[in-house]
Computed example of a mutant assay.
Amino acid sequence: PSIWPIIGDEIPDNDLQEIIIDAYPFTAQTVPIDPTTYVLELHHGPTCAFKDFGARFMARTMSYFNKDEDDVLHILVATSGDTGSAVGSAFQDVPGIDVTILYPKGKISPLQEKQLSTFTGNVRSLAVDGTFDDCQKLVKTAFTDSDLRNNLRLSSANSINISRLIPQSFYYLYSSLVVRNRAPRDSRIDNPAIIFVVPSGNFGNLTSGLIAQKMGAPISGFVAATNANRTIPDWIATGNYKARPSIATYSNAMDVGSPSNYERIINMYNLDEVRSLFASYWLDDAGTLQAIKNCHTRTGYMLDPHGAVAWQAWDDMRRGGMEALLRGEDFDHTKPGLTKNIPSWAQKIIEN
């Protein structure tokens, strides 16, 4: 498995294999919906969230390293929706670990709130009067509070913890290999340019894809697809990063105005490299609803609002958007759609 070079000899092979088997009684499904489009289904875990992949591996490795400790390890988590449920489920009844989840009151779905409010024992959830960014700020402040850290062993299960992102890179490696092997049959493309269009909020998922690419996954590039919380598209378009309060949208798990993984991205790449590697796109709520309808009408596949943002980004690109960029047409980044940067792989979209 791709995790072994990262783990090294920290966990014996047999123990690591047991952790992997226990963490993943489910798989990521790579589902073709038209000859050149695949949906990477990440909802087959116990909480129906892609973060089950990261949280379950993290919980088991933390439990492994914590087993000989006398003091409880306290996990602090901020959630905009699905992180909290996945983390709560993953750490439920894990000995020696307590979990506190902060979520914005009234700003997550009823199903997510039901999941969060029914954990017991070592997992508790607290509703915060504010936004996800407020919850995230509270968590980050706790980690910089020396008095608190002197009295409690603290860690996080958000994507600020790299152990959440590394296991999420696994499904990028797996699915890119699946598509590379299937494409000659599905679309008669022998050497496909594999582009991941990633619905993005805090940008942890996309950062996991960047890690996978650096580990050798055959990925040509990425599309950062956001809702109206367009902090990253605006940065890519203008070069100015300006965090802002998040606003509520239908794709609520992406409602992040100050994405913490921006700091990771700029430590991996400079802005010119980001513009070469990423296409950037944002969509409002009206466009999201239309995307759900359009995808179902044309393919029979029903998307959730988060996936709909990504699908519309891909559909706009292949139906003339990328060609318009290459012709030099100007794009207004303040309106839904692509930003004007041209990624290095743009020509391959037109050719395929």
Rank of each mutant, 00 (worst) to 15 (best):
P336L: 04
V77K: 01
T226P: 08
I266H: 12
A286M: 15
S63N: 12
S89Q: 11
R275Q: 13
M254W: 04
I292N: 08
K140S: 12
P199E: 09
K214Q: 15
N66G: 07
G130V: 03
L303H: 06
S89A: 13
G221F: 04
W235G: 01
G81Q: 02
S175D: 15
M58V: 04
I247L: 14
M58R: 06
E41P: 03
L111H: 07
T100R: 12
V31I: 13
T47K: 13
D332S: 01
Y174G: 02
K340T: 00
G201R: 03
T238S: 11
N161Y: 05
M62W: 02
N229E: 05
N205W: 09
N229I: 08
G130F: 04
T238I: 04
I265W: 04
L111K: 09
D285Y: 11
T100H: 07
F222K: 08
I6C: 06
I342T: 00
A225N: 05
R230Q: 09
L271C: 07
L338Q: 00
Y64K: 08
V139Y: 07
P343D: 00
Q92E: 10
L325V: 01
Q213N: 12
G209T: 02
D129L: 11
S125N: 07
D34F: 08
A279K: 00
P184Q: 10
R244Y: 08
A59T: 06
A217R: 05
R149F: 02
N267M: 13
N240M: 14
T118Y: 09
V309R: 05
A142R: 05
G216R: 15
D22F: 12
T238Q: 02
Q92I: 03
M317P: 00
A90E: 01
